[in-house]
Nucleic acid binder design. Structure first.
Lengths: 221, 221
DNA sequence: AGGAAACTTGACTAAATGGTCAAAATAAAC
DNA sequence: GTTTATTTTGACCATTTAGTCAAGTTTCCT
């Protein structure tokens, strides 16, 4: 089900409901891959349909045949990303050991930033521009999820298993430091050195640093 | 001096070197204020000169009279921001108490995010799009500054005054969590509640949470 | 006051871009 | 193998937008 309640996503009439043919399935995926590449780098406004079509290896009208409009394509992309975004937080287990759970969550988020940096940047771009498309998602599903997990964290704190901290802000902080390595990747590479060999090390070092600070910083006192 | 080494910032011929008249000074500032507003919200590509001119209360040709091109305006804006950006980190004092110094730095960065969120978003946008304009700044002045401060932090660690952590990543983490509250402001407000009364509280709560985790997490063990 | 310099703008141009359309090419169905 | 449905695209259109230009208006200087 769609996580975004857009007015009506002007979907390509052909691909509306009918089960998708092999060609449709393949081409939609090719387009989505190309689009993620471009949108995540240039943002919505900075992306042209022609660019995406070229990257996908087809003509612009053909792309429009699969996605009725630029916005339609952009929304599809965001939808595909949002679910994966929530998953790790949803996995936070109220019955687990608090410190272990936080460690797992941080590790999962870093892995996500490493594996899908473009998705992270797509999301960051959308938020930075005022979340015109996913405002409803933020105020709905995201807010609910954070509130649910805040309850769990608060319980851990009351049980003396975690330092006193405002749960929502703990969550924000974890988002901030983990996504930073995807979103500000260019800056990290400029400061630490750009070559690909080092790239993997950056993530490992980042994870170590983040875990050090958070796990120690969160121990109850 | 300019922090950005662009090819040649095609500066308006009139305003090239001659000392600026009262009108120039005022209007340039009016334009920069309007431009920060628009650029920080819509990004470079998403901003139109007409929008900025309208917000600045003048005609488009008049704006072009002060800034020769859209890019020229954008660069001026970034330059104005970058210096302020580096200042707090530059203030890190090698002779101060490490924990106090870190506390001061975090506090200064949060204050910055609170006072100048638009500047933060302008910067974030630029980085997110691959830093096409300030790539040189990142690899030059920024990298140097981080390396300098990393030396100091490493010295603190060796002296046993701070937990073992990769200094550059500590700096990144502080940037991440503090700037998050400016850049992802929309998301924070969506989750925590949007009204203006609460807005100030968010920053206070954020600061408390960040200081808790970092100062405890960084204590030597 | 009067002339020069600085400032301002309506009307315009050229290029870029989102999207359409009709016709061609290909694949599927029988 | 022929018909039908799907897929593909070259050519085109309408709109947006960065930037120009020439002609005005205001400010400054003496």
């Amino acid at each position: 089900m769609t996580a975004i309640q857009s007015g009506q996503s002007a979907q390509s009439a052909r691909s509306a409901n009918r089960p998708k043919s092999r060609i449709q399935q393949k081409n939609r995926q090719v387009i989505l891959d190309a689009a993620l590449d471009i949108f995540s780098t240039y943002g919505f406004r900075g992306t042209t349909i022609d660019q995406v079509a070229a990257k996908a290896g087809m003509s612009k009208p053909n792309l429009i045949y699969y996605f009725a409009s630029k916005e339609d394509l952009y929304i599809s992309l965001l939808e595909d990303t949002l679910d994966q975004w929530l998953a790790p937080l949803a996995d936070l287990d109220p019955d687990g050991d608090p410190i272990d759970e936080i460690r797992s969550y941080i590790t999962a988020k870093i892995a996500m930033s490493r594996a899908r940096p473009k998705g992270s940047r797509l999301f960051a771009n959308e938020i930075l521009h005022g979340a015109p498309t996913i405002g409803g998602f933020l105020q709905g599903p995201l807010k609910s999820l954070v509130e649910d997990k805040a309850v769990i964290i608060r319980r851990w704190i009351e049980a003396g298993a975690l330092a006193r901290i405002e749960p929502a802000h703990l969550i924000f902080m974890i988002w901030a430091v983990t996504q930073h390595y995807a979103d500000f990747d260019v800056q990290v590479r400029a400061v630490l050195g750009a070559d690909q060999t080092k790239n993997d090390r950056h993530f490992d070092d980042a994870q170590a640093a983040i875990l050090t600070v958070f796990l120690e910083g969160l121990r109850p006192r």
